[in-house]
Design a binder for these strands. Structure first.
Lengths: 345, 345
DNA sequence: ATGAAAGCGCTAACAA
DNA sequence: TTGTTAGCGCTTTCAT
């Protein structure tokens, strides 16, 4: 007993126990062939015996890889500390986080969670990456004019966005065909025999909300309904309720509604029912996102599915690729939405 | 122009520009006094000029601090990949994540998100910490018999749990007084004049579910109702519906229900309404957690609040403390629940 | 108050 | 196939 084993074992210790050099142990650990299989076994045994775990800091120092990426939820500041509550309270965040974690864990990498709603917070994200704390960023912005993509590009940091940025920037992103999704909703309402259809759209400065509205209008136009009543919401349930109330006042005879997300659709259903309309008998309602509210609502909502988990997995795939070979041109992948038919239509 | 500035600047570079030694620059960066204020300014200027960002790996290598912690969501495996979906779909997760992120960001530290539902995943968590990737763990288990706390202790890794572990282990945790919370619910139902009250409890192998049930029973007993009908659920909305249906069949005249969480309470409301009962006129319903479903439900639910955000902030506080001074004894903090009265009672 | 220098634990280029 | 060795960029004694 020469050493007071309090220290956590290093490569050196393993090497000594195995009777080989540090380099050989390193090779075994990193799965490099060209190592005699007997020696490999000896080394593995020594690793077990010493309880060795590689020091990531030392490793990163030489490889210049953190082996970590950041998942950034960005947007405009809510009210004070409310941003976190708002972001994390949204079931959409759960799907994003779940998709990211599930994909990355197979690669032995784990995401760091960051918020970026203020200038300070954005700087923190950039610094975090520049310090080498993480190798790249997955960015989900609620706000279309988010300055973070630009900052990331200027700093030359690998990043992939969820959703196409409002103004074109040379950066990779993943999105769905929102227009096509809205068309699905329109076609479905028409196929259900609805003729007096309205829509609750999202904030029109959000490209996705625009696209959904445009897609819906165009498809309805194609079906012979050039004029569609519109009420704008902000993607919250409350705004859906308000919008529906207005629509109902102005068009008491409507028989179909398409809302740009499930939360607003749910709000719409509540208001319709309170006003004595049966869903779907009197008014059919279609949502968007296939999020938990679509199932919590009664009747459960027919909705357009955005394959969020697949999308974020693709984001991660692109990011990892970009980290491997930094000189790649930005890539973008657009997924197809689908319609999930439930009892609300 | 002697250098091809492609390299990212190091301390050395800053030192050269500022005309001082590495040590001095390091001191300025780390806010150590005993540095002439003129020199300080020179150094800061050099940092700006070079665009220097400290390399975290190099830092960690010497300080033996990652400056990061892990947020682990643990539990029993769902079905295959479903665990992530399940965990992240739960609004509770959003509150936990939000609380953790909001607290830690003020300390300049950011959580790594990990899942630990299988043996392999648990090993990954332990290894992650042993490699020095993070300095400690915040652990939220859905499963009471989770083996992870034990593993963490055995490895001597700093950790703090959300909720008291099923079997006593020497580890810090934060919890609420579940029993007291359930008593709040009982007292409230009685004060609303309810005399035929039932409860939908959670899985009885979960300590919190047990405590809520016991607290409810004891309080009702104290009010003169020794026998309370019980139906067991598993914290999902579906199970709440099933439990409520059964309760209604067996006790068609009940006028009050306490469910061990909001999701089940919401399910109960749905079933009650479908069976022609008005809430709260015919049957009053109390939930637990004050989670989004409590607000999404119509009528909105009276519920018991667990101050989740404060609790996780306290967890982080304890963990950071423990990381600073590792020799501390485990600490536990129990928060008081409160009742939020809404329209369901 | 400042600088010189010794590592922290690891990978990888080069030798053998 | 294996070993030797030179750093990676930083903090931190120890001198001065």
């Amino acid at each position: 007993m020469s050493k007071p084993s309090a220290r956590t074992p290093t490569l050196e210790d393993v090497a000594r126990v195995a009777g080989v050099s540090r380099a050989t142990v390193s090779r075994v650990i990193n799965g490099i062939r060209n190592v005699d299989s007997e020696i490999q076994e000896t080394v593995r045994e020594a690793i077990r015996a010493t309880g060795y775990a590689p020091n990531q800091a030392a490793r990163s120092l030489v490889t210049r890889r953190a082996g970590t990426i950041v998942l950034v939820m960005a947007g405009a500041p809510g009210e004070g500390e409310e941003f976190a509550t708002q972001v994390f309270g949204d079931p959409f965040f759960g799907r994003v986080a779940g998709g990211v974690v599930n994909f990355l864990r197979n690669h032995g990498i784990h995401p760091v969670l960051m918020l970026a709603e203020t200038g300070e917070a954005r700087t923190e994200v950039i610094d975090f990456l520049r310090r080498g704390n993480a190798d790249g960023a997955l960015l989900v912005s609620t706000h279309p004019e988010d300055p973070l993509p630009r900052l990331l590009i200027d700093a030359g940091l690998p990043a992939v966005l969820f959703a196409r940025p409002a103004r074109p920037v040379p950066i990779s992103y993943v999105d769905t065909a929102h227009q096509a999704g809205a068309e699905l909703a329109a076609d479905h309402l028409v196929s259900r025999g609805r003729t007096k259809v309205a829509t609750i759209c999202g904030p029109l400065d959000v490209p996705a909300a625009q696209a959904r509205l445009a897609g819906f209008q165009q498809a309805m136009d194609r079906h012979g309904y050039p004029y569609i009543p519109i009420a704008e919401g902000d993607f919250t349930q409350q705004s859906g309720e308000t919008a529906m109330a207005r629509l109902l006042t102005e068009h008491p005879d409507l028989d179909g509604v398409f809302a740009a997300n499930d939360l607003m659709a749910h709000g719409a259903v509540l208001v319709l029912q309170k006003n004595g309309r049966r869903v779907p008998e009197d008014v059919a309602v279609v949502g968007y996102d296939n999020s938990p509210p679509a199932l919590a609502s009664r009747p459960r909502l027919t909705t357009v599915v955005q394959p969020v988990e697949e999308m974020v997995a693709e984001m991660a795939r692109i990011l990892l690729d970009r980290i491997e070979s930094p000189e790649q041109a930005p890539r973008s992948v657009v997924f197809d939405p689908a319609l999930v038919v439930r009892e609300s239509t």
